[in-house]
Design a protein around this nucleic acid. Structure first.
Lengths: 332, 332
DNA sequence: ATGAAAGCGCTAACAT
DNA sequence: ATGTTAGCGCTTTCAT
């Protein structure tokens, strides 16, 4: 492989000068600079990352902490994040974690074995040791799609978004509304809070019997959750699912039970994943700006790493209610 | 950061001995080995990847060449591949490419700037320069989900699988069957070949008017393709979509046009992505064993890299016809 | 069986 | 403005 020395030799200069040119440092004679640039161009030389990595004490690698289930929403988000990360020259390495202590411990152990430049969290870690470690090591952290105290967090206003979704349902005349969500994470709880708030704001009692919790945000658990629901409670005309995947699983069950959406039951989701606009019926939902979420996540982590920004306060991205076919006015 | 020297000093031995222990080399006294291992355990020391990378001339990084559209099927597959890659200690770096020459050139340029240990192709490159380069540099290559001459390819028997799918349709009494696919890649053409073969085997004429080609395998192009289809041809009772995403887009259009699936038109897909089993109606399709595909892709690339295997002949994984709700007997 | 020493490719401090 | 040099953390001859 061609190295900086080869370029230096060909140019009749020292490696240091070539290095200066590559890294855009000043104090290089413009003429020599051009000459070096020309040789680099001709030879197709590119600096060795491992060598730079070693001397700069940077790995050009960012860790992605994500739930083992890695759902459709997260895969879509990752796809956006990755494009930007790639643009900034980072490699990625995944840390799949389950929602239990052992798994988080394993994750932390692996984390320590990698000299990460930064970490993107698509999943909320409970273990305080995790934050202690990253803080201690000075590893920049970005939380994407939820908020963590002391960590640069990028997300929509979950509570307000859920409030908007449920208000839409109430506005359609629904009075008994079910909710499907997971209480295991902050954004789930915030969406639930929005659900209750909408009820209060509109003067409705918050009937807690109409709530089913599931462990993960997958279609499968949407199915499971909806089954539970039907077992417990038949007297409702609308459902607020905390994610689109939950909504899709729920609609599947409703269909199997001979219940029509939206004629018999209105369903609203959250996220606006790709399939939402094609499902039958098309899913009414709250859009999270996935592209911007991905863009901002990568960009801000990069800023944190390069030192051009400090954590500061959360970045709140705008959400948007997308009304499609799965919700309709309640038939009295 | 704690280094090999620190361990050596604590153990009262030389870095060379510690290195031997870490890498499981022989010629180390068992007692000393245990002692070193103990210290490593206690201190939580892990070798610096960049340093190893430099001396070993390996990057521990694999490139993933994938289409810019990075569809649901690919995202799901990547998720499986990544888990294994992670297990083997590789980082990943994406190379998004479009289906045009310029994009492939750019990709090649970026490829050259990364010292990759290996490359996984989820997308077929046309540019012969690409293969010339990788061959020349001795970079191991694995093609996943399609076959390339001279490259270790892992995939199902596309033609047979498509044959099975179309035979299912014909067996249901359908005689005028449409096909939606992309001719821009080998597996698309093979699936098309299976489509024709099934017609021939069953003594049906291959009415080429019943075929629509699209540029990409996305839901969006399923919609687009189906619209085209309806414009050109109304006289058919079943559709073979070359991927599930195409099928979903097609079903969406059919629904919008007031055509029922499967009562009016049967639809069969290909891949068996996650949503297939939840869509309304549940999609009949041909399953590709995504988990094993991911597993084998990562494993075989690793073997190629570590020199414990040579390209050899293609790895053919079993497919399976999954009959669900979107296909039904033709009503005369 | 073990250690000393060289060197992987690069950057930065220091010298000129 | 440019060159010299040391050193990042590791592995691997080559001695012993």
């Amino acid at each position: 492989m061609i190295s900086i020395k080869d370029i230096a030799r060909q140019a009749g200069m020292s490696p240091a000068t070539v290095s200066r040119v590559i890294n855009g440092k000043s104090h290089v004679h413009p003429e020599k600079r051009d000459q070096i640039l020309k040789i680099i161009e001709e030879t197709g030389y590119v600096p060795n990352k491992a060598a730079r990595s070693m001397v700069l004490q940077r790995s050009f690698t960012v860790g992605i902490v994500v739930n083992e289930t890695f759902n459709m929403f997260q895969r879509q988000l990752f796809s956006f994040i990755e494009r930007r990360l790639e643009f900034f020259g980072y490699h990625t390495i995944f840390f799949f974690v389950q929602c239990d202590g052992v798994s988080e411990e394993d994750c932390l152990a692996r984390l320590k074995s990698e000299a990460l430049d930064g970490i993107i969290m698509l999943h909320e870690m409970k273990d305080p040791q995790f934050y202690a470690y990253t803080m201690n090591m000075g590893i920049p952290l970005v939380a994407s799609t939820f908020s963590i105290q002391g960590v640069l967090s990028i997300h929509v206003n979950e509570e307000q978004a859920a409030f908007d979704a449920v208000s839409h349902l109430i506005g359609l005349g629904h009075r008994k509304i079910g909710m499907l969500y997971s209480g295991g994470d902050s954004f789930g709880r915030q969406r639930a809070a929005g659900f209750y708030l909408a009820h209060e704001a509109l003067g409705l009692s918050r009937n807690t019997h109409l709530v089913v919790q599931v462990p993960y945000y997958s279609i499968e658990f949407g199915v499971y959750g909806m089954r539970e629901f039907l077992l417990q409670e038949q007297d409702f005309s609308a459902l607020f699912a905390a994610t689109d995947e939950l909504a899709i699983g729920a609609m599947r069950v409703l269909r199997d039970e001979g219940l029509r959406v939206p004629e018999d039951i209105s369903v609203i989701g959250f996220d606006d994943i790709e399939i939402a606009d094609y499902f039958i019926p098309r899913l009414t939902t709250v859009r999270q700006p996935l592209d911007e979420l991905g863009e901002q996540t990568a960009l801000n982590l990069h800023k944190l790493i390069s030192g051009s920004r400090r954590p500061g306060r959360d970045l709140i991205l705008p959400h948007k209610l997308i009304i499609r076919e799965s919700t309709a006015r309640k038939i009295p």
